[in-house]
């Protein structure tokens, strides 16, 4: 438990807080990496997931490829990208986007797939075009599951963004790897405590967003978990 006390002491030391290498700057960088990675992953995964969910085609392919993507070790992807692209932000970004895509993709198509077929048939019967069915029926009804997918992607990316520092980028991995190299385990723990707090805050934010979405788009009490 002594290590925890040392970690708290490290965090509360003003010398470790301010400046370009301080915990605040590193935290901001960390959140920034997470946001960029998840947004870029959303741009790829959501349209693809909607395409699969709406047409019902290519589901097997998506399941298999996202399963394989889960097996990809992030450390390996960071390393390969780092060796090819050199030191910088691009390499870890690729790894983080690859990490985030499977959950978001699954959330997007599962959200559409979980909708009662009768609802979609009814929408078609009242004369909605396929585009209208997608944007006015399927997207709102599939939102809770999509948000769930984005939420777990965010959680994974926040925890894994620490690996960015392995190839020379910033973020909270910076003090973590510094601690590893210098055997300053209190510093490592301090940085990881900040990551956990960030994750908690983001979880709380998503809980709020999900509740709002639930209230806005699902007037009937939802039975899904």
């Amino acid at each position: 438990m002594n290590l925890f006390a040392q970690a708290i002491a490290w965090l509360t030391d003003p010398a470790n807080q301010g400046g370009p290498d301080g915990i605040w700057t590193r935290s901001l960088e960390h959140v920034w990496y997470t946001v960029i990675a998840v947004v870029l992953a959303c741009l790829v995964a959501i349209p693809l997931g909607y395409l699969v969910g709406h047409t019902g085609r290519g589901r097997g392919l998506v399941v298999v490829s996202s399963g394989a993507a889960r097996a990809l070790p992030s450390l390996g992807v960071v390393t390969v990208a780092g060796l090819i692209l050199g030191i910088g932000l691009t390499a870890p970004m690729i790894a983080l986007i690859l990490l985030a895509i499977p959950s978001i993709l699954a959330g997007a198509y599962a959200g559409l797939e979980a909708i009662d077929r009768q609802t979609i048939d009814a929408a078609r019967a009242v004369g909605m075009s396929e585009w209208q069915i997608l944007t006015r029926v399927e997207m709102p009804l599939g939102l809770p599951l999509l948000l769930g997918g984005v939420r777990s992607a965010v959680l994974q990316v926040v925890a894994t963004a620490t690996l960015a520092a392995y190839v020379g980028s910033g973020g909270l991995g910076r003090p973590m790897f510094l601690g590893l190299k210098t055997q300053d385990y209190a510093q490592m723990l301090a940085a990881s405590l900040v990551v956990v707090v960030l994750a908690l805050v983001l979880e709380g934010a998503f809980e709020l967003i999900e509740r709002l979405a639930q209230r806005r788009f699902a007037p009937v009490p939802s039975t899904s978990t």
Binding site: L189, S192, E203
Partner: peptide, 15 residues
């Protein structure tokens, strides 16, 4: 248990 997943793995190996 869900939040356990948010703990970065590297420091967990140390702590």
């Amino acid at each position: 248990f869900g939040l356990l997943y948010a703990v970065p793995s590297l420091p967990l190996f140390i702590v």
